[in-house]
Write a protein that binds this DNA or RNA. Sequence first.
DNA 1: GACTAACGTTTTTTT
DNA 2: AACGTTAGTC
Length: 668
Amino acid sequence: MASDFAFESLNPAQREAVAAQDGPVMILAGAGTGKTRTVTCRIAYMLERKIPAENILAVTFTNKAAAEMRERIAGMVSKKAAKEMTVCTFHSLCVRILRGGIDKLGYKKNFSICSGSDQSGLMKRLLVRMGGKEERIKPEAVLGAISKAKNQGLDPTDIEDDFYANLAVAYHNELRAQNAVDFDDLLLLGEQVLREHADVREHFRQLYRRVTVDEFQDTNALQMKLLQQLVGEPYHVCVVGDDDQSIYGWRGAETANILEFERFFPSPKVIRLEENYRSTQAVLHTANSLIKHNLGRREKALRATRKDGEKVRIVAMPGDDEEAEFIAEEILAGKSAAGRKWEDFAILFRTNGQSRKLEMALRERKIPYRMVGAQSFYDRREVRDVMAYAQLMVSPDSDVPLLRVINAPNRGIGNSTAVLATEWSREHHESVWQALCDPEFRNELGGKSRAAIEAFVALISGARNKIEIGGANPATVLEELINEIDYRPWIERGCKTQSEKDQRREGISMTLDDLRGSIAKGRKLQRWIDDCALASDREEDDLERKQGATLITLHASKGLEFPIVFLVGLEQGFLPHSRSVAEGTVDEERRLLYVGITRAQDELTMSYCSQRVRYGQTMACEPSNFITELDDTHIDHTSYDDLLGAEANSDELDNFFGNLRGMLDEVD
DNA sequence: GACTAACGTTTTTTT
DNA sequence: AACGTTAGTC
């Protein structure tokens, strides 16, 4: 037997999971049952058994989760082994597969990945071209429909709405012409190349002999197909998940994958982890009483290993201002009275828009906090622009980045010229870049535009030559280019506040530094661009560096835990969200709340408001129906007013609520 | 083509 | 309330 680094600290079910190394394995791991620990131990044990690290693949849901898992394994076994394993998302796995074999599908190997605002920009142009502008269709709506179809394994031309189907075709052709793919194409083409090319398939099956898939409840039909291609006999595949925590149905996730796993991978060993180590009995009981209301789930007996603990509080708030103030004061009080760290507190909400008042309340009290989510770093304008220039260094024929920066900063190539160039490129079946280089096209233009275009072409070509012919460091070349075009002054001119300016400047330098670091590690420019496109993860370093209370959406909170949790906005329309009510997906909202509740280790406070400001207007709110579904055994129902009255005797709080009243009066 | 002012829209969740 | 888009002006 191996030197059991962890065996003795595991419970019997966890031990069984670690020991079950061969053939298909399904681990059904309820919230807080030590899932990550079990999975990392299981992989560490593989390494212990001298399975070569390069044969191990672990697929996670986010890049951050991948980094974490790798780190934890590194802590248990050798750093070297952890480095040699493949731990990544389905999407980055597919990039890996496609960088080697996409030419088999008729793409050039230097394909680019179109994501985020570039994708919306492309769709927006298509809407204009195809006359969908009058109907005020949102590009994101079309992209969403296309994405959904692709992930369900449908052809986008099958989309019900004819106009959408046409747009889907145009969108696909456009990407195809640019040798570009979107996120969904990565999976689609990855699966296709494995399915159609036995040599590629065998290569990867030989390479990844041991596959683990985390957060399996969030995989969709397409990812399941991919997994089937990737895993051959004798099916050393392990999936880990919890159907109660499936919250990505809107992205095509199918809990059916959990139920159907055994159909694809015969007679799997099924192991249940049901002992919850995270939460108090009060929290867990409350969570269980809620999730019970979902039909068609795998019944689970989640057992608390901890004592009852503090009662769960449900607080009725007059409005969202009071809610924010109350929580901020609670954090302040909890920090000093109970000796908690800022990091012990988390505030969970349904939509990103709900964070603003909370942020303000925290900032007023100088409570440090970190916002997880919100706008992705990589979708910030200046970052996108810099990356677009980087991409032009690699492949100037990519229209999307080219059109993005053709006039950023302003260089005298306005919209009308850009449209002319695009049309010319379409007529001549070439890229926009090629059109710009074409003397015939230039002759069509006025002298001013022509000179501007010639300068632009010279700029990009010059930079490309420095890298390709001169062998210069791409990071240096890009930095010089950014300086040469006076990008910084231009972007700063559009800023209203100083902090905005600082932010932009920081974004630019962080991007350039990141590239420099990546190049220093010996990576190619293309690789860096790929990593950025896939890492829609937030500023990871920033996240780890920054200390403080956590503000986070319910979705992003999955997999995390906090000693003290505030869950706000339990109102009809927010939780469940009105859209989910309309679409008949309230079950998923219930799971979302379940995920939120089970994040709490020691204390949980949920709140709802009678009114809330939306679109600058005050609106009345009803308490969420979910509240009535909860079992009250461990719940303390109170209201803002109750707490005001009850705490009136306490000196330190007296002041606070006095102040609060004062503020309210001012508002009124 | 660039800049400004008025207008209208917005808020689900993310690889 | 705040942001992005659009129309109108120089």
